[in-house]
Design a protein around this nucleic acid. Structure first.
Lengths: 171, 171
DNA sequence: CACGGCTGATTGACATGTCAATTAGTAGCC
DNA sequence: GGCTACTAATTGACATGTCAATCAGCCGTG
């Protein structure tokens, strides 16, 4: 480990053909998975995966309500994305916005009865879809490997993110 | 390897908490990766990954041109998606549409000089980003595991897609 | 208390995706 | 030729995302 091979001057290597193929397979497969899941959620409950994430968070929150910014942090969305999405969900009566007593700039997002019902109805189909599309496809070892990959990639991203541009943002 | 235990007849189990966590990590990590790559492509070359996929296919095609439907099949996009995207790319002078001699319903998509130049300029940054975000993060074994996962998931998806989506025989 | 800066949330403009409907041309068949 | 069915591609309506700008209310400081 101590033999310090001089790092190739500058120009570090580009991915090999195989690495590139694996990258593409990997990223495209994830997208196909996501869209398959989305399609099933949609057809079985008229909820998108965005809706699902929001409803899940709210259903677990105290009083089925949450400050908008907390919610954004919890599900790791940009605030404007959340704001747009909440607008659409409010139109469908899945959530409601209320003024926040503590800070009148703020908004509290409240799960409606309709929203709760939709969420409950979608839970089992959603989990079933995850099992069928992901869990059932893989061996135990592969599932562990998937978790390992995700963690490694995430750690690397955060690491290099810190080195490159955005030192603060972690959420 | 696969000892086939008889599968429990009905009500198959839902994912465990851990499986669910891994699923979320996996799918979210893929999304974060994709958006990080997109951001880098964008800032370094003003191309989106969609643009890149289209330009790559065209740059490898005979005469830098391709029938629209061939292109869609090649990069595995829905045709309407491609059509919309080509519209945006045409406005930016990256590609051009020409009438097709053989079949006048058809369109031939032609890479413009601007498009080729943009593509060439983005290649190295793009590959570098793939290396930095993906290849550098992982060990050799992990890369192999990623390829394996992708292939397994894809195969499973196609398999179950055949069972669900495509009515083979007995609708 | 007034001011300037920060924070919470929304908005507008636009890119990207999906689905269903439409337009236009090809081809088989009588 | 004329009818019908099929195919190529585009279009429109809308959902979803990002970025930058904006609006409004909080708060520390003089």
């Amino acid at each position: 480990m101590t033999q310090d091979t001089p790092r190739p001057r500058r120009a570090r290597r580009l991915p090999t053909t195989e690495e590139l193929r694996i990258w593409r397979d990997f990223i495209e497969t994830a997208e196909v998975l996501r869209s398959a899941l989305t399609a099933r959620l949609q057809s079985e409950s008229s909820l998108s995966s965005g809706d699902y994430a929001v409803l899940l968070a709210l259903s677990e929150a105290e009083g089925h309500r949450m400050r908008s910014s907390e919610l954004a942090a919890h599900i790791d969305w940009e605030r404007s994305r959340l704001s747009h999405h909440l607008g659409r969900m409010e139109r469908r009566d899945l959530i409601r916005r209320e003024e926040c007593a503590a800070d009148s700039r703020g908004a509290e997002i409240v799960l409606t009865a309709t929203g709760l019902r939709s969420f409950r109805q979608s839970t089992v189909p959603h989990l079933t879809a995850v099992r069928e599309l992901f869990v059932d496809a893989l061996s135990r070892d592969q599932i562990v490997a998937a978790g390992d990959l995700a963690a490694t990639l995430r750690a690397h991203l955060e690491e290099s993110g810190r080195r490159r541009g955005t030192p603060s943002q972690t959420g």
